Computed example of a mutant assay.
Amino acid sequence: MTETTESIRLDKWLWAARFFKTRALAKAAVEGGKVHYNRAKAKPSRTVEAGAELRMQLGWDEKTVIVQAVSDKRRGAPEAQLMYSETEASIEKRAKNAEARKAMNLSSVHTDHRPNKKQRRDIIRFKNINQQDQD
């Protein structure tokens, strides 16, 4: 991997490191407060430096990574993974959250078929009764 010495924008680095599919998505995430640079809210034009800590909210997960290399070229995934390293605490936290989501999915009720007309009416009636009790 070639490391560049010029200044690289945060949104461009996130795109090159393959956290987002497009620079527009990376920019929107940074502007939306989903990316923090060294524990502070950042702007898309923020210059990225090696050794910086990035905390990102990606879907259900939150990743904390340390910037290892700075590059503005988007390359293959194996090369992109060399640009950062995820912290141990972040890996453990994501694993715990994934486990909790799996447990939550197992506890939900899944039926083999959709409710028929009578069952739908019973469900609506039940919901309306419970709504009236809360009012």
Rank of each mutant, 00 (worst) to 15 (best):
K117Q: 12
N97I: 10
A95Q: 10
L106D: 11
A100N: 07
M104R: 07
H113N: 05
E92R: 13
R114C: 03
T111L: 12
A95W: 02
I91E: 01
A100G: 10
T87C: 02
K102E: 07
A95S: 13
N105K: 10
K117N: 09
A89P: 01
N116M: 06
P115D: 02
A103S: 00
D112S: 01
S90D: 00
I91Y: 05
A89W: 01
H113R: 08
R101G: 01
A95T: 11
R114V: 13
K102S: 06
E99W: 15
A89Q: 07
A103K: 15
K93N: 15
E92D: 06
S108C: 14
M104L: 14
R94F: 01
P115A: 03
A89K: 00
K102D: 05
S108K: 13
R101D: 08
N97G: 13
E86G: 06
E86I: 05
A89S: 05
A89L: 15
L106C: 11
P115C: 01
S108Y: 09
A95F: 13
M104N: 14
S108V: 13
K118Q: 13
A95V: 10
R114D: 06
R94K: 02
V109S: 00
K118L: 08
M104C: 03
N105L: 04
S107P: 02
E86F: 10
T87L: 15
R114N: 15
P115V: 08
M104E: 05
K118Y: 04
S107N: 08
K96E: 15
N116W: 04
D112K: 13
R94C: 12
K93V: 12
A100Q: 12
T87W: 06
M104G: 09
N105A: 07
N116H: 05
V109N: 03
S108A: 14
R101S: 07
T111M: 09
D112R: 14
S85R: 04
A100S: 10
L106P: 08
N116S: 04
R101H: 12
S90P: 00
E99R: 03
L106K: 13
R94Y: 05
A103H: 06
T111D: 05
L106N: 10
R114T: 08
V109R: 02
S85C: 05
R94G: 01
K93A: 10
E92V: 13
E88H: 09
K102F: 09
V109A: 03
S90G: 00
A89N: 03
A98I: 13
A103L: 02
E88D: 11
D112V: 14
R114W: 14
